[in-house]
Amino acid sequence: MTDFFLHYHYWVVVFLMMTGLYVVVESGNLVKKIVGLNVFQASVFILYISLGVVDGGAAPVLREGITVYSNPLPHVLILTAIVVGVATTALGLALVVRIKEAYGTVEEDDIYGQDEGE
């Protein structure tokens, strides 16, 4: 049981990851799919950020009298990944706008129904 609380951040990550993936798979609405994808990516960001924690470590800013710092590298990596995530979301939503213009709907079933008809 102590293990459970010791590693609670992993449970947060797993919960968010599964929620995100479920929304991507289950939802027929393209905008909701993008939101699901976002939640899924955010879970991985948290995974990385929680990696950097060092017990008793201070924020990684050089100051006198502090010897133990948290690891700043995962934060830097995830800053890059967040940028990638923003770009993906922007592109995804732009595509949804174009799809809406071309099909008049953002529901997956309607779109495939229209394609079948051709």
């Binding site: 991507v24 393209l30 799919k33 994808l37 990638v84 995804g92 595509l95 799809i99 071309a102 394609d115």
Partner: peptide, 20 residues
Amino acid sequence: DRRALTASFQYLVMGTIGAT
């Protein structure tokens, strides 16, 4: 073809899951 848009969207979703 307008199906290029849905194809691209599908690829975006699956590609992003893969990359993640």
